[in-house]
Design a protein around this nucleic acid. Structure first.
Lengths: 156, 156
DNA sequence: GAAAAAACATTGAAATTTCAATATTTGAAG
DNA sequence: CTTCAAATATTGAAATTTCAATGTTTTTTC
């Protein structure tokens, strides 16, 4: 008799015990880890961690963002972002300006240097994306993105 | 004219510039972050971080694992695992035994205390999984898992 | 079977992240 | 208009993670 994923429920109804690889949380962590590792490898040529790519990418439209907005968009929590921005300011990639409309806020802008770097990182990120589509398939990639968007929507 | 995801290529062939939310790497990071946050919140009641749940879960079959195998299964890199295991040994959740067949290796086993904790964590993780299925849908969850497995397969 | 290479795990220092607390500014309540 | 609560960002200390180097043991090579 072939074992199916669902069968663990039947075999022990009092306390189901699926393998960790059956957990969505695990599969997401594993996939994220792997894709992130690949991306990091490419960005390494510019000496920039993935987090800074996200920050520069979010700022690449030329608009400033408050720390709060930027933290959410770049998927970092607040104190971590503060310290990452400190480093990026040291590297002249971004700068801070106090928001004139609400002086509690600080707006972050990408410098020219930051924008130039962002363009190079953009190429690297796109080439990785292309590589994924290549090996994983166009259809599957689009389908996966759609499902992830829905999950984020329903979970957020 | 409706804008489609693919259109960014057409609008600027020399340097496509999709928003960061169109990148698979970003969507995976975002989804993982959110699901992880939810899981962490539940495991918090037992005072255990997600990483230790993964370790205990992997060890819950009673077999010992070498540090290398465990690192891969629990999605941690080597030195991080060493130090996490140090903490778990201090908490009497796991113990080390030098592998008699290959003395370069160290086998990690779950203690009784670790197994008991693992059972409680298992309930919490399953209830989270149930919650996801509840709001996101059974069909979509299974489909997403399948796609993630394929991605991991093709990327690994 | 000795020497060299590979596999495995750990260590210490450095970098990063997180937690809890703090400071500042704005909005709300009376 | 003053006080209190909420929102925003930062800070310092502590915890964690990472990087490069090290020490064992096993495997390979000659």
């Amino acid at each position: 008799m072939r074992l199916l994923t669902q069968d663990f429920v039947v075999s022990d109804p009092s306390s189901p015990n699926p393998p960790i690889t059956a957990h969505l949380a695990y599969l997401l962590a594993q996939a994220n880890r792997e894709i992130n590792r690949q991306l990091d490898e490419r960005l390494r040529t510019e000496g920039v961690p993935v987090e800074q790519w996200r920050i520069l990418k979010v700022l690449s439209d030329g608009n400033g963002r408050s720390m709060g907005d930027l933290a959410e968009a770049a998927l970092l929590n607040h104190p971590t972002l503060t310290k990452t921005i400190d480093r990026m300011v040291s590297d002249s990639l971004v700068y801070r300006i106090s928001d004139p409309n609400d002086r509690r806020k600080v707006l972050i802008f990408s410098s020219d240097r930051g924008k130039a770097l962002s363009r190079r990182l953009n190429s690297l990120a796109l080439s990785q994306e292309a590589h994924i589509v290549d090996s994983y398939g166009d259809k599957a990639t689009m389908q996966l993105k759609r499902l992830l968007e829905n999950l984020i929507e329903s979970a957020g």
